[in-house]
Design a protein around this nucleic acid. Structure first.
Length: 109
DNA sequence: CACTTGACGATAG
DNA sequence: GCTATCGCCAAGT
């Protein structure tokens, strides 16, 4: 791997997210070391993720509120189904017990 | 090369 | 508690 760009770094971190767990854009940015300043770039990268890297669990990445902000870009309600399959309950586009399923790359990694 | 946009986050009102 | 605005940075046009 050559994490020369933010994109690659984001892909790596997202791929490290265990099933049944989720993380936030800010957390990923924090893990990379840019802390929130690149939070938007993280979402941008995830958008590319589905086209560049195979199976990057972008559905496990939500915003700081646990809201499935990117579900619309993912392809409808596919995101909820995937999370539900992993044991993550999603209600009204937001993750239930977000704090319980929250996985911090900077801490766990 | 300059401007615009963007899966966000935090702070202020 | 909710809404509005600013901040930060990179990629695309």
């Amino acid at each position: 791997m050559s994490p020369d760009n933010f994109y690659d770094m984001v892909y790596q971190v997202v791929r490290l997210i265990p099933a049944g767990r989720v993380t936030s854009y800010g957390a990923i940015a924090n893990a990379i070391g840019t802390r929130g300043r690149t939070s938007r770039m993280v979402g941008y990268a995830l958008k590319h993720a589905g086209s560049v890297h195979p199976q990057v669990p972008a559905h496990r990445v939500v915003n700081s509120q646990g809201l499935l902000t990117g579900k619309f870009h993912f392809g409808g309600s596919t995101m909820e189904q995937l999370l539900a399959s992993e044991g993550v309950m999603v209600t009204d586009n937001k993750i239930v017990d977000f704090k319980k399923v929250f996985w911090d790359p900077a801490t766990e990694l």
